[in-house]
Computed example of a mutant assay.
Amino acid sequence: MSTGEYIKPTESELEILQILWEKGECTVRDVHEILEKSKDAGYTTTLKLMQIMHEKGLVSRDTSAKTHIYKASVNQEKTQQQLVNKMIDNVFNGSAARLVMQALGNHSASKDEIDSIKKYLDELEKK
């Protein structure tokens, strides 16, 4: 995957990427066991998804041992930023404010989250 190219991960691929971003390196078995806790996922389905993700350049694979080790090839922050930008453009007609208001209206933010948002907004105003 070249630097200018962006491949949008599917919902299932994002679930796997979240695991790899959190854990670092994992086998297919490791990923499958985590996925199984929250959804009915077959091992072969997880394996096939991770093979497709490797072909797409979303993950890299170390094949030097019998058990292949996978890790994310895409940056978490950059991927999140690209997905949010696309959502702002496509769903909120380019309005980041509408996205934020919708998110805060539909999700209970903790006191710490609200304080963090206020601090971020204060910093933006100072610029």
Rank of each mutant, 00 (worst) to 15 (best):
residue 27 T to W: 10
residue 80 Q to E: 12
residue 55 E to K: 06
residue 67 T to L: 11
residue 100 V to S: 06
residue 51 Q to S: 14
residue 46 T to E: 02
residue 60 S to H: 13
residue 39 K to T: 08
residue 28 V to I: 15
residue 68 H to A: 15
residue 104 L to F: 11
residue 65 A to G: 01
residue 86 K to R: 14
residue 83 L to Y: 04
residue 73 S to M: 04
residue 36 E to N: 09
residue 70 Y to W: 08
residue 79 T to C: 06
residue 63 T to Q: 09
residue 78 K to V: 13
residue 18 Q to Y: 10
residue 67 T to C: 02
residue 80 Q to Y: 11
residue 63 T to Y: 06
residue 93 N to K: 14
residue 97 A to M: 11
residue 34 I to P: 04
residue 49 L to V: 07
residue 15 E to L: 11
residue 89 D to F: 08
residue 57 G to V: 04
residue 22 E to R: 13
residue 30 D to N: 13
residue 67 T to M: 09
residue 100 V to I: 15
residue 35 L to D: 04
residue 41 A to I: 15
residue 82 Q to M: 14
residue 39 K to F: 07
residue 72 A to H: 06
residue 43 Y to R: 12
residue 27 T to Y: 07
residue 69 I to Y: 09
residue 58 L to Y: 02
residue 106 N to D: 14
residue 82 Q to H: 11
residue 89 D to L: 11
residue 96 A to D: 09
residue 77 E to I: 09
residue 68 H to T: 13
residue 51 Q to I: 12
residue 31 V to R: 00
residue 49 L to Y: 04
residue 16 I to T: 02
residue 76 Q to R: 15
residue 53 M to I: 00
residue 30 D to R: 01
residue 33 E to G: 01
residue 91 V to T: 11
residue 65 A to I: 06
residue 55 E to S: 07
residue 53 M to R: 00
residue 82 Q to S: 11
residue 14 L to R: 11
residue 92 F to P: 05
residue 50 M to G: 03
residue 24 G to E: 07
residue 85 N to W: 01
residue 61 R to L: 14
residue 83 L to R: 03
residue 32 H to N: 11
residue 76 Q to A: 14
residue 65 A to T: 13
residue 82 Q to C: 06
residue 33 E to T: 13
residue 36 E to L: 15
residue 58 L to E: 05
residue 43 Y to I: 14
residue 22 E to W: 08
residue 56 K to Y: 01
residue 14 L to K: 09
residue 101 M to A: 07
residue 97 A to I: 12
residue 57 G to K: 01
residue 43 Y to H: 11
residue 59 V to K: 00
residue 49 L to R: 14
residue 102 Q to G: 04
residue 65 A to S: 12
residue 85 N to A: 15
residue 24 G to D: 08
residue 44 T to V: 13
residue 52 I to G: 00
residue 45 T to F: 10
residue 85 N to K: 14
residue 48 K to V: 10
residue 54 H to C: 06
residue 76 Q to W: 05
residue 78 K to R: 15
residue 84 V to S: 05
residue 37 K to F: 04
residue 35 L to S: 06
residue 87 M to P: 00
residue 28 V to A: 13
residue 91 V to C: 01
residue 96 A to R: 04
residue 87 M to L: 15
residue 75 N to L: 05
residue 45 T to Q: 13
residue 68 H to R: 12
residue 73 S to L: 05
residue 59 V to Q: 02
residue 46 T to H: 02
residue 17 L to N: 05
residue 26 C to A: 08
residue 94 G to E: 03
residue 43 Y to L: 15
residue 101 M to H: 05
residue 101 M to T: 11
residue 27 T to N: 06
residue 100 V to T: 08
residue 34 I to C: 02
residue 44 T to A: 12
residue 43 Y to T: 08
residue 74 V to M: 08
residue 96 A to Y: 10
residue 14 L to M: 15
residue 47 L to N: 12
residue 23 K to W: 12
residue 77 E to V: 09
residue 77 E to L: 14
residue 31 V to S: 01
residue 16 I to F: 03
residue 19 I to S: 07
residue 80 Q to G: 00
residue 58 L to R: 00
residue 32 H to Y: 14
